[in-house]
């Protein structure tokens, strides 16, 4: 596994250019171009604000921020889960013809999605400042840490699903459903406090629950996340990453035969 990580590191310029190609190629032909990266989350925010302050009044204050803080990181994970699943198949012409560490493709995909999330997070950050959230160096450090954890976790998941998807194409569709169910199982639209107490331990098995909680602590409440929340997230992130690398390492050997 160390060798794999070393190989991937040697191909970092490939990762960089694939990420670049993805981010810049995405809006290349459009008039507003890169601005779309910011326009989409802003419009999303606008819609949520209108809906939840006029139509579906929530008793959570500043609900738009409450939701938005969790929704952006969720969108990142969800895109890794659904679009990320097909990332190897999308690049099959490369995989079938050229050698490079196969891990480069999911790493590039997740990194591009992550960078995209970072841009959205800039919007979230500014909005939260306007809503009166205070940041301290410690909470900023925690925010950074949480993002890294989510990245590692998302990468682990993507490694697993994209490798499986090569052998079993139905996975993409199954994951679409799964991702929706997972979203409702995670405290994104609601607060974790509404979860019945006896279900809570099960609920916390969901790695995204602790990650979401941490985001919300920092960017909504302006507080330092509880050490248990962070610890659980770190542990989950590392476990999924290792499992992901192992599964991918096993499955990658026959990619080019199956595709």
């Amino acid at each position: 596994m160390l060798q794999t990580i070393k190989d991937v590191w040697e191909y970092r310029s490939m990762i960089q250019s694939l990420v670049n190609r993805d981010l810049r190629g995405r809006y290349k032909a459009s008039v507003l171009g890169f601005l779309w990266t910011f326009i989409v989350p802003l419009c999303q925010l606008l819609v949520y604000t209108v809906v939840f302050s006029i139509i579906l009044k929530s008793n959570i204050e500043r609900y738009y921020l409450f939701l938005f803080v969790a929704l952006i990181p969720w969108n990142f994970l969800s895109s890794c889960l659904t679009a990320g699943a097909s990332c190897i198949i999308q690049q099959q012409s490369l995989v079938n013809k050229i050698y490079f560490p196969r891990e480069v493709i999911p790493v590039s995909f997740v990194t591009a999605a992550f960078v995209n999330m970072l841009y959205c997070e800039i919007v979230v950050f500014i909005v939260s400042l306007f809503s009166g959230v205070h940041y301290t160096p410690l909470t900023l450090l925690c925010l950074f840490l949480v993002m890294i954890i989510e990245y590692v976790f998302a990468l682990g998941i993507t490694l697993i699903v994209c490798a499986l998807d090569v052998y079993f194409r139905d996975l993409e569709h199954i994951l679409g459903i799964l991702s929706m169910a997972w979203m409702f199982m995670t405290p994104i639209m609601y607060d974790i406090s509404v979860v019945p107490e006896q279900l809570l331990p099960v609920f916390l098995l969901n790695p995204m629950a602790s990650i979401m909680q941490a985001y919300r602590d920092i960017m909504y409440s302006g507080a330092v996340p509880h050490i248990n929340t962070l610890g659980a997230a770190v542990l989950m992130g590392i476990v999924f990453m290792i499992v992901g690398l192992l599964v991918f390492g096993k499955l990658k050997r026959r990619f080019s035969e199956v595709m």
Binding site: E10, S13, M14, Q16, S17, L18, R21, F100
Partner: peptide, 12 residues
């Protein structure tokens, strides 16, 4: 050129 060459494992 940059994309293609990086796929061959060349650094920037």
């Amino acid at each position: 050129i940059y994309t293609n060459a990086s796929i061959f494992g060349l650094s920037k």
